[in-house]
Write a protein that binds this DNA or RNA. Structure first.
Lengths: 332, 332
DNA sequence: TTGTATGCGTTATCAT
DNA sequence: ATGATAACGCATACAA
């Protein structure tokens, strides 16, 4: 691989000059610039990003930490962030945290060690204190789907409580009173917020929250399957099943059908996220739209604005969920 | 951020010694090692991967290029590769090619410029020649879902032709003779191989290939929607619709239902890939299982074996597709 | 076992 | 406008 030395030698100029034309951040006469460009082309020169980064402590790349690489949710998020950044000529370095504190920290340290210009994090296990401290460091942080008062300017969030409220309200309006609920892991804030909204809606309708018909799932399809099975075994009838996300809802849907239940006639089901295949299920799934792709976009824009100086971008920190009514819910 | 200099000063040893305990690749007395470790801890020292990489021309990370970050196919592939590599203490740097030659090359150059120890590529647009040349370079390459004779040892492939054959044969066995086909882009090799297998099965049954009922889609859901609409307009009846992948199949399925067609009674539909939600659709989708997660795993193992010296791993280069019969196909 | 010195490929600060 | 040269943070061949 050709280096800057060889280019400078072939072009008959100094290292500094070659560097200047690469970064075109200083005046270079057209004549010498041409010589350099020619030399570069002849040698097939490609700058070494590592050396460049070491010398400049920049890297033109931003670190992105997601919980998982698979699944519709993170797929959309990564896609949104990457496309925006790529359009701006920046690269994204992706790694995973697997919702595990140690792995999340490991991932963050990896990204930091790669000299990322900024970090966009979807973290669930590390503490607020850790993040606050991290945020005081040299590398700017953007938090997605998590709100921390002390670093509010760096947070891109969805109003999960509102989402939980909307989904419950919609089924209460349909006359349901016997409600089962498969939540996400209780230690995840979005699960909890959704439950909060759920309870608020119940309160407005003077309905009690029934702990018996609450099952704690794990946001996966199979979690939804196990959830509905377990809930049916409780023996207490319910006319609607609220799921903490679409993946669990789709699992529950399939299991319900296997058990001979007609959705929505025998049982209404609601999801959360509006994943790409929610409208392909049968019946099509009523859910809450989570504009995660837009939020991924916005996280990228926040970085572009704060770190890469694209001042004119306007930023939105809080996104709103919306009810998407489809065929999996029915009035009774 | 603390550097190796500060650690060496605090510990009262030389740079080299600090470096040795970091990499523990040379004898260091327990006593001095302890001093160094203590100093590191006290300073919260974290090695700078960039500097490290520049000095050693290694990076303990492998570059991964996929076409897209979203979608069930690439999600599974990335997940498989990352988990295997992460378990081995290596990191993955992911970037995208968007099935576009220029972007694929840009992505590869980015990965190369980051000093990746190896590259795992799912590329569709760059030429064989480019890859062969790339493969002669310093950085080892692994190709996934693409076969090039000259670098066969670096390829992890699925027998797409066999898959195409299996899917067609299964519906021929069911008595279908009026067959419509929504293919992937014709310039993608997997699309083509699947069509080849399709034709081979037709031949065995002495059935003609009907160009009229062939629609070229783009492997997306909406492509499937457009495909079936267009095919229905041809006016020539068909009892089965073969789709180049599950995403198009799911789009076609939804559109078919919208148009009042009963799947599978009025129309059988087959997909390809066996994506995670194929079994959640209604009716559940008959498809060809593409073990892409395993293949992602295997690509990682190939790297671990060849580059990171884990010699005992055994490698499999060719994977076989399997028919998964579900409810979207029926005998006539 | 430990230390010294040099190189890795750039950027950036001085000069000129 | 251009050139010398010192960082950047670490690995490593060579000495001791």
């Amino acid at each position: 691989m050709a280096t800057i030395y060889q280019v400078s030698a072939l072009a008959g100029v100094s290292l500094a000059t070659v560097s200047r034309v690469m970064n075109n951040n200083a005046k270079v006469s057209d004549k010498t610039k041409q010589k350099v460009v020619d030399a570069m082309k002849e040698l097939g020169y490609r700058p070494n990003a590592t050396a460049r980064s070491l010398a400049s402590s920049r890297s033109d790349s931003v670190g992105l930490l997601v919980s998982e690489l698979h699944g519709p949710f993170f797929g959309q998020m990564m896609g949104g962030t990457e496309s925006e950044l790529r359009d701006a000529g920046k690269h994204v370095i992706i790694t995973t945290g697997h919702s595990d504190e140690e792995k999340e920290i490991d991932g963050i340290e990896f990204l930091l060690s790669r000299n990322c210009d900024a970090l966009i994090l979807h973290v669930e296990a590390v503490s607020d204190e850790y993040l606050i401290k991290l945020n005081k460091g040299k590398v700017p942080i953007v938090l997605i789907n998590r709100f921390i008062e002390e670093m509010a300017d760096s947070c891109i969030t969805l109003d999960n409580a509102l989402g939980g409220y909307l989904m419950t309200k919609s089924i209460l309006e349909k006359g349901h009173t016997e409600i089962a609920y498969i939540s996400g892991p209780k230690w995840k804030s979005d699960s909890n917020e959704r439950i909060k909204g759920h309870k608020k809606a119940l309160q407005e309708y003077n309905l009690p929250f029934n702990e018996q018909l609450m099952y704690q799932g794990d946001f996966t399809q199979s979690g939804g399957c196990e959830g509905i099975s377990s809930l049916l075994e409780v023996g207490r009838p319910f006319t609607v099943l609220i799921c903490g996300n679409d993946e669990m809802a789709s699992g529950a849907l399939a299991t319900a059908r296997q058990k001979g239940l007609d959705v929505p006639k025998d049982l209404s089901i609601v999801g959360f996220d509006n994943v790409i295949y929610a409208s392909l299920l049968f019946p099509t799934l009523t859910t809450i739209d989570y504009p995660i792709r837009d939020m991924g976009h916005m996280a990228a824009r926040l970085v572009l604005k704060n770190i890469y100086g694209q001042k004119k971008l306007d930023i939105r920190h809080q996104f709103l969920p919306e009810l998407v009514e489809r065929d999996s819910t029915i009035s009774i």
